[in-house]
């Protein structure tokens, strides 16, 4: 493999994760990423694109998204209007076909990275509707009788928050990676990427407190990586002395987001 994905300046990937990305690329399969919120699933695609020097196309999936939206849209209303006012080129249906994100990725002259973000947000059947398209990397536009085929097979990265279970047939076609919550060593690296000159003492205290909060069983919403990064940023800007972090929990609202959790944490201080 010539084009290998590596950690970038902004993104620290575990060895396992790097291997997953590279295997997925070599086998030409979509890579399905699962993990706790805030473990950097979405950022991975950006890092892959950057590391390989490719363009990134993001398809944000919402609860109302249909598979068809990613392929193409036939703007019938526009055509209807144009027809009523006698515009030029109404008879050319292709003018009213707008490619979706998947179509855009297929039509691109260069290889791109396609991120299908939070696929589990959509309806249960959504992934099944994309099976053929992701397998064969092509789809058919009925209105113009044209087949859109990928010029360069895009690298497909799919993220899921596990809100819904994905269908087996879909899973069969994916390479799966579960981003485990980073351990302290990896977390340290991640924080250093964001704040290269963070003071050692502050970092240590903040991380200790962070993992201590995470270890509490009663805490309902466990803070994640992005929250730790925000917190360290806040601590730095606020100029809080390192030894006060554990005892006074300054700006704790950045880390703990629920009233009940806040009380639990304060109770243990």
């Amino acid at each position: 493999m010539e084009n290998n994905f590596n950690s970038t300046e902004e993104y620290v990937a575990s060895e396992e994760l790097m291997a997953s990305v590279n295997v997925a690329m070599a086998l030409k399969k979509p890579l399905l990423i699962k993990g706790e919120p805030g473990t950097g699933k979405t950022m991975l695609a950006q890092a892959v694109a950057k590391s390989l020097g490719l363009r990134l196309i993001i398809w944000n999936v919402k609860s109302t998204t249909k598979a068809q939206d990613g392929l193409y849209m036939y703007d019938t209303i526009q055509r209807l209007y144009d027809g009523q006012f006698g515009e030029e080129g109404v008879d050319d249906i292709a003018r009213y076909i707008k490619l979706g994100k998947l179509g855009e990725a297929f039509e691109s002259e260069e290889q791109v990275v396609l991120l299908i973000d939070e696929i589990d947000k959509a309806d249960l059947e959504f992934p099944n509707d994309l099976l053929w398209e992701l397998d064969q990397m092509e789809f058919y536009i009925h209105e113009t009788k044209r087949t859109v085929k990928a010029k360069k097979r895009p690298i497909v990265i799919i993220t899921s928050n596990a809100e819904k279970e994905l269908p087996d047939a879909f899973l069969r076609r994916c390479i799966f990676h579960y981003i485990a919550f980073p351990d302290e060593a990896l977390m340290r690296e991640i924080v250093k990427v964001h704040f290269p000159d963070v003071e050692e003492n502050l970092l240590k205290n903040a991380m200790d407190t962070f993992y201590w909060i995470r270890s509490m069983r009663e805490v309902r919403k466990k803070p994640s990586t992005s929250e730790l990064i925000d917190w360290i940023n806040a601590l730095q800007i606020g100029g809080i002395p390192a030894d006060k972090i554990r005892s006074e929990l300054p700006f704790i609202g950045v880390v703990v987001k629920k009233d009940e959790d806040l009380e639990t944490v304060k109770h243990y201080v």
Partner: peptide
Amino acid sequence: TLIDALDQGLCGSQLTQFYYVARMILVKS
């Protein structure tokens, strides 16, 4: 797919790597 991965030498020669590659291909949850 796993056999394909082995053929392409994606597992290197290490059992650890084989473990990860096999897991990412075979296990979906």
